[in-house]
Design a protein around this nucleic acid. Structure first.
Length: 894
RNA sequence: GGGCGCUUAGCUCAGUUGGUUCAGAGCGUCUGCCUUACAAGCAGAGGGUCGGGGGUUCGACUCCCUCAGCGCCCACCA
């Protein structure tokens, strides 16, 4: 045999991927078949493949390949995302390394650098996907900032503005001082932080306090001067320069004495009013809250309510502004350190306590968010929530697993407007144009804007130069939410044939972490712009963790490089490793050992192929064992295929793979092939050979979606194939199981048990395989067709039906029938007795339970007849087993 | 603080409307084998009473309550 005993993926994978590409097997065009459409969750254009992608893309590829083989017109559209903040940050860093500051560049210059970076790094990740075997239609590769997608975004913006769903206004937003941009609520990640709670003294102006204070007042007085003061607890002493009020709860007895007075902001010296609002928690701290309307969301609300002035003490980069008056130019966290000392020195710091609180961080730059008042663009979300909630709740769009329906509902029911503007250059520029004398127009093009501006102002002398386009870009997700539509040009040209054919798409595979960012918003855009769902099913994958359950991350260094894994175990091995550990919706604990298992499976398949390919055929009569084996495996294949189809319907992909794994390894290799295998060097009859090859062919097809490369390699070799043929596009047609099938399967289960019984005895007694054994059957089990199978598989000589078994026989039971293997002098009577007594004890207890049940009148009366009948069958079966064993025991003890 | 989910063999997980001899799978473990496709293999074996407690029921891994532990999402307590 010239074939190596190990499968060598490296010499196979590249070859077939090239073949698929050359024969254009991934591409899809509308035709009469049922479409099956998947759009890839576009990875960041400058990203590299990580384990999360691996999982995601493997699942998509499995679904797509399976659909294709089921005869659907499968179309998997790849593409990348411009990832506004992430990419801009990378470009800024790269420029910084070259000594270039973004601030010194014009928008156009910066974008030139950004495109250069994109062209340089863009699409690497798509090449990596090819290594994995992804069967995307590469001709359709798109980018969220390519022409079609960009135009779609702008058109949608204008449309929503015209519908009154987009507005511009000053609001408190999440400010990222590093990226110097606003963020949406979803881009803020709250983390617990060990910080401090500072208690600051706010002296009462005038030093006067009311007379006749009621019970329960807590008045603080200076140790030396006796001047009264209030104590405010804060985690952010650096914001006191922005204080414009102090707030107490009107129902707080401790602080009633402060009502109507004014207090002095420490260090700053500003006099601010004491206001009252029951927002303040009496129990927290001292019950006194400093109010900084410019830098806290709640304080902002108080400020609005009581008409307080707002002092913005921060610059965009998080340093203190001129407005602060103190510490100008210093970073906010440096100020916090320094102000603690300064307050203490001035005798204004009462105490400091350790405190744990939640701080919002920017998802992208990981710096603490600064709540900031600024002018931004917003999308009204109530309308979209109303659109997107029902179809998911009533399962028009199905979520797998369903638990995410709850998460989804909760978010939509509490939705807030979406801040869609970003102070970034890399992205889709907001198509709003400001007029020289105030006001603005929103239009798809500058020319259109000019026309509108002239109309609006009545000034026909206005030129393009008089208009100033908004500097901001749109949130990345404002383009991603159109992805399933814009990929088929459904925004710009909603009547085009492709869009009508491929949309709505079939399955979306993505992580639950972007359910709000992306999934929900795509559903919104889908209904708004097409009146239809964007996809029928959403399969949420888990998060990839290491085997200790830790999230994979660069900093922990626990994330293997997918390409290294592929090199080590082969793409098929890695795909299998991923899938074995990936139950839908649960996090997956990735362990390289699973890739090893995948690689081993490849070897198993490979070696089964070597065996079959090594057979010489000859004109010979087909042995009974082979006939039986073929009949049985045929049935087995139909049953497994039906089970697997069911698992696919429910997106139980790892279970489907496991079923194929067992089918191939246990049923096909260990049982079927051993049953039909000719003696060493002997030829095999034609009929058996043909049947075996046909089985192999079907098994490869079942397996192909999971392991595309090895299956193609072997499929091409089991028959002579024509150029251009591929397992990828060969139809998977397996008949439904029949009633006769289950009969055969049942009979074969018994036969397997008999074989296993004989083998177990052989094992216990350490009898060599070469030594043939006899089997005696005590009872009635139809075995005619199976005798030769038993003889072959367990090296059995004669199979005799007897009423009394030989002396010195070891026995076992299959169902209610006893089997005996005469061992003559080799029998160990005591061991045999122990074995039988153990079984008897177990069966007796089992029988006791059944009898108790049947003696229960209520059970017999209430349980369905079927169940009672079954219980009686159990009873009689068990009694018969016990009788046989007792007989056997008596014979041994004689 | 609110919501959701999880807890079944050493590990990772199945167990569909409560009832088939149902307590399962893969991996790992143990025993014996280099048997002429495969030692990255073959044959066989052991292993859990289904997180704790209570309840409903003729019958509970499955339904209800409760406690404990874990995880996730959401939330403006400084």
């Amino acid at each position: 045999m010239e074939l190596a005993s190990k499968y060598a993926p490296e010499s196979v994978e590249g070859k077939w991927y090239k073949y698929w590409l050359e024969h254009d097997l991934f591409s899809s065009k509308p035709d009469g078949r049922e479409p099956y459409t998947v759009v890839i969750p576009p990875p960041n254009v400058t990203g590299v493949l990580h384990m999360g992608h691996m999982l995601n893309e493997t699942i998509q590829d499995i679904l797509v390949r399976r659909a294709r083989m089921e005869g659907k017109n499968a179309c998997w559209v790849p593409g990348t995302d411009h990832a506004s903040i992430a990419t801009e940050a990378k470009v800024v860093n790269r420029l910084a390394a070259q000594g270039i500051r973004k601030a010194d560049l014009t928008r156009e210059e910066f974008l030139k650098h950004a495109w250069a970076w994109t062209d340089e790094h863009g699409g690497i990740i798509l090449k990596q996907l090819q290594k994995l075997g992804a069967s995307c239609d590469w001709n359709r590769t798109a980018f969220t900032m390519d022409e079609k997608r960009s135009e779609s975004v702008i058109k949608v913006f204008v449309d929503l503005y015209n519908k009154g769903l987009i507005y511009r206004g000053v609001r408190m937003v999440n400010w990222d001082p590093k990226a110097k941009t606003a963020l949406s609520d979803e881009e803020v990640i709250y983390k617990e932080e060990h910080s401090k709670l500072y208690y600051l003294r706010y002296y009462v102006e005038g030093g006067q306090i009311p007379e006749n204070l009621p019970e329960g007042c807590v008045v603080h007085r200076d140790e030396k001067t006796g001047k009264p003061y209030a104590v405010v607890a804060t985690t952010r002493p650096e914001t006191i320069m922005g204080d414009t009020a102090m707030c107490i709860n009107p129902n707080d007895p401790k602080n009633v004495w402060l009502k109507g007075s004014k207090v002095i902001v420490p260090l700053v010296g500003r006099v601010i009013p004491v206001i009252e609002d029951d927002y303040v928690d009496i129990e927290f701290g001292t019950g006194c809250l400093k109010v900084t309307p410019a830098h806290d969301v709640n304080d902002y609300m108080l400020g609005e309510k009581y008409n307080l002035t707002s002092i913005d003490i921060f610059n965009d980069d998080g340093t203190l502004s001129e407005a602060a008056g103190l510490y100008v130019g210093m970073d906010r966290f440096d100020v916090r350190k320094q102000i603690e000392g300064d307050l203490a020195e001035a005798g204004l710091l009462e105490k400091v306590e350790a405190y744990t609180n939640k701080v919002g961080f920017s998802e992208r730059t990981d710096v603490p968010i600064e709540p900031k008042l600024s002018m931004q663009w917003f999308l009204k979300m109530k309308h979209f929530a109303d659109l997107a909630l029902p179809p998911v709740m009533n399962d028009e769009i199905k979520f797998y697993p369903t638990k995410y329906k709850n998460t989804y509902r909760h978010w939509l029911e509490n939705i807030k407007d979406w801040c869609i503007s970003r102070q970034l250059w890399w992205g889709h520029r907001i198509p709003a144009y400001y007029l020289p004398k105030g006001g603005f127009v929103v239009a798809e093009t500058a020319e259109e804007a000019l026309r509108m501006a002239q109309e609006k102002t009545g000034d026909t002398t206005l030129t393009l130069n008089d208009l100033r386009q908004d500097d901001d870009a749109l949130d990345t997700w404002f383009s991603s939410w159109l992805w399933p539509i814009s990929l088929f040009d459904g925004i710009l040209d909603p009547d085009n044939a492709e869009f009508k054919y491929y949309y709505p798409t079939s399955d979306l595979v993505t992580g639950p972490d972007i359910i709000f960012f992306w999934v929900a918003r795509m559903i919104m855009a889908g209904y708004e712009y097409t009146g239809k769902m964007p996809f029928r099913n959403v399969y949420f994958t888990g998060i990839v963790r290491d085997k200790l359950g830790r999230k994979m991350s660069k900093s922990l260094g626990n994330s293997p490089d997918p390409l290294d894994l592929i090199q080590q175990y082969g793409a098929d091995g890695v795909r299998m490793g991923m899938m074995l550990s990936a139950p839908a919706g649960n996090d997956i604990l990735f362990d390289e050992a699973l890739c090893e298992q995948g690689r081993n499976f490849c070897n198993k398949i490979w070696n089964a192929f070597r065996l079959v390919k090594g057979w010489e055929t000859a004109e010979a009569e087909q042995p009974q064992a082979a006939k039986t084996a073929i009949r049985w495996f045929d049935a087995q294949l139909r049953k497994s295929a039906a089970d697997i189809a069911g698992m696919f319907k429910r997106y139980r992909l790892s279970e489907a793979l496991m079923e194929i794994y067992r089918l191939f390894w246990d049923e096909f290799s260990s049982w079927y092939l051993e049953m039909v295998k000719p003696a060493y060097g002997a030829p095999i009859d034609r009929a058996t050979y043909d049947a075996t090859i046909a089985f192999f062919d079907t098994l490869l097809k079942l397996l192909h979606p999971f392991m595309p490369f090895i299956t193609e390699e072997l499929w091409q070799h089991i028959f002579d194939r024509k150029d251009g043929e591929s397992i990828m596009v060969s139809p998977m047609t397996i008949a439904e199981p029949t009633a006769a099938d289950s009969e055969i399967l049942g009979a074969m289960e018994n036969v397997k048990s008999i074989i296993a019984g004989v083998r177990a005895i052989r094992n216990q007694k350490n009898l060599p395989l070469k030594e043939s054994l006899d089997v005696e059957v005590l009872g009635d089990m139809p075995l005619t067709d199976y005798e030769s199978t038993i003889q072959k598989m367990a090296n059995v000589g004669s199979i005799r039906r007897v009423t009394t078994k030989s002396e010195g026989a070891s026995c076992f039971m299959v169902g209610t029938i006893e089997f005996a293997v005469p061992l003559g002098a080799l029998i160990d009577v005591n061991a045999e007795i122990v074995k039988i007594e153990g079984e008897l004890a177990h069966l007796t207890a089992f029988l006791g339970g059944i009898k108790k049940k049947l003696a229960n009148a209520k059970f017999v009366a209430n349980a369905p007849a079927q169940v009672v009948e079954l219980e009686r069958k159990k009873e009689s079966d068990t009694e018969s087993k016990i009788a046989s064993l007792q007989e056997a025991l008596a014979a041994l003890k004689k």
